[in-house]
């Protein structure tokens, strides 16, 4: 195999994502003592499970999530001496409505407080996929968009400017073709950067521009939520859910559960509600 240049000096290669990929150890289901928790969200059929398998070396059955049997697949990988636990969430189109799979996905992103949420999107159907991305970005500011199926998009004659997308969304965007393992090293690198706090995201916020009264209501209520729960990253989103009368969020406000989310320090593993599936 001809390799163009075989560098001996480590320093010049240190910053190259391709180099780091060499440090990837796929841990399969062996994921005790993890340092970071990474959630995988996305619409159904965007290749989420393919990304999951590429990262963990597992062979998670790739397919749709049936209506009622909502299970989270979990696996792990290690990268640069840090251990990551990866949670594959059910594929959903939104996090707003009431079905069980959407609730599982949303509750994990909100209450499970993953260190990084990777949102896998179908590059050939960007607009529809962005609906979910925008909703996730309301809940968490530690997110990465994985622009998957980029090869198919090229074949269809699309060009996607991931830099514009990253600027508009305020989070890192990594183009991938997970089936061919393209872009996976860069994705791992981006995950490690967001997890360790080297990259801080400034996510896009939904604004109800058309409705002045609604904007005012959200602003007023989110101010109150922010005062009651100082440090909460998603006061605006909580306000929107309260306005819509979301029973789960109302309950979280009443019980003070929401107050526990305001610590910006990393979550200890034991707090995560993972026991039910493991």
């Amino acid at each position: 195999m001809a390799t163009p240049t075989k560098s001996t000096g480590k320093s010049s290669c240190e910053a190259c994502p391709a180099h780091h990929a060499g440090n990837l150890i796929k841990l399969g289901v062996n994921m005790a003592n993890w340092d970071y928790v990474v959630a995988l969200a996305g619409n159904p059929n965007t290749g989420k499970s393919t990304v999951f398998n590429a990262l963990t070396g597992l062979r998670q059955h790739t397919g749709n999530w049936p209506g009622k049997t909502v299970v989270r697949a979990e696996g792990g990988f290690s990268y640069q001496d840090q251990r990551y636990k990866l949670v594959d969430l059910p594929g959903t189109y939104s996090l707003l409505s009431t079905s069980t799979d959407e609730e599982v996905a949303r509750d994990f992103i909100l209450f499970g407080r993953p260190d990084v949420t990777v949102i896998v999107v179908d590059a050939t159907r960007l607009e529809r996929n962005l609906n979910l991305v925008l909703q996730v970005l309301e809940i968490t500011d530690r997110a990465i968009v994985c622009l998957n199926l980029i090869d198919e998009a090229k074949r269809h004659g699309f060009t996607l400017d991931e830099r514009t997308l990253a600027r508009d969304l305020g989070v890192p965007v990594v183009p991938t073709a997970a089936r061919q393992n393209e872009g996976i090293p860069q994705l791992i690198y981006a995950i490690s950067e967001v997890a360790s706090g080297q990259v801080v995201c400034k996510p896009h916020q939904i604004e109800a521009r058309e409705s002045e009264p609604l904007t005012q209501a959200i602003d007023k209520l989110s101010g109150e939520v922010a005062t009651a729960f100082p440090g909460l990253a998603n006061a605006r989103w909580v306000a929107m859910r309260l306005l819509e009368g979301d029973p789960r969020i109302i309950q979280a406000v009443r019980s003070g559960e929401l107050g526990e989310l305001n610590q910006t320090t990393a979550v200890t593993a034991g707090e995560l509600e993972l026991a039910e599936t493991t």
Binding site: E127, N131, V133, L134, F158, L165, D168, R209, E210
Partner: peptide
Amino acid sequence: SIYADAGRIADRTVT
């Protein structure tokens, strides 16, 4: 508003 934002961002990204 989510759909409007998604449409606007997608238009800027995709050619």
